[in-house]
Write a protein that binds this DNA or RNA. Sequence first.
DNA 1: CCGTATCCCTCCGGATACTG
DNA 2: CAGTATCCGGAGGGATACGG
Lengths: 133, 133
Amino acid sequence: MQEGTMTKPGNLHETGGCQRVNTVLSRIGDKWSVQVIMRLSAGSLRFNELKREIGNVSQKMLSATLRGLERDGLVTRSVTPSVPPRVDYALTDLGHQLLVPVGALGDWAFANIDAVESARAAFDAAHSDAARA
Amino acid sequence: MQEGTMTKPGNLHETGGCQRVNTVLSRIGDKWSVQVIMRLSAGSLRFNELKREIGNVSQKMLSATLRGLERDGLVTRSVTPSVPPRVDYALTDLGHQLLVPVGALGDWAFANIDAVESARAAFDAAHSDAARA
DNA sequence: CCGTATCCCTCCGGATACTG
DNA sequence: CAGTATCCGGAGGGATACGG
């Protein structure tokens, strides 16, 4: 982490910055955005290809997620007006750049998921101690 | 991003891994976790210190967030049974390690927030074109 | 001081059906 | 194929009041 940005106590009083950054974090945290970004990292995909790959996502949420990502300038939506219509989604430069920190986070999560899950198990066990000495 | 983990197409079929990783991403994405982790990066804080620093968080959400982080093994909760009671929260090793990728993401967000916001403005303008030629 | 409990309301997200 | 529209349940999250 760098000291010169939002992590320094000196500018934490600038709450506006935290709020704005939070809007980006919220997008990362929502249920499908990361999945979509990951799938598109290999190249552009059509709507139903995306839907098939992710598997358990509804059309509603997929289109909503894609619209959100498009709105944020992270993916492009290319319509080919043929019959049947064809729509391709791809990452923008910004989207590819986002892939770097998101990938780092994903790698951390992947590396530490066992630690987190065992911590959860321990915590839950310690707090359901209706049965103990 | 590394090729060897969850980002490789070869193991995307292992949906269980994605699901598990998603639980961690959800914690990052929730409204207060990142703020708390950031504040605790400088050292331990008491409940109301934390609450005051963040400012607009309710007790309910702060305690819920802290319990979640504690459950995941990211923060510790130290009770000093005095009168009045004193409770200190601090990052665990795992929490400090998480700070690295989270900081990277925060830095990305901070660096690109302008691009994202202008993309949003452009998108919104293009889609509220009830008034045009 | 440090929470928990309750109420209440909004938004997320799934299922289904329909349109271009 | 690529969505939109509608309905609906449930989780998220704020305000307030109360307990240890």
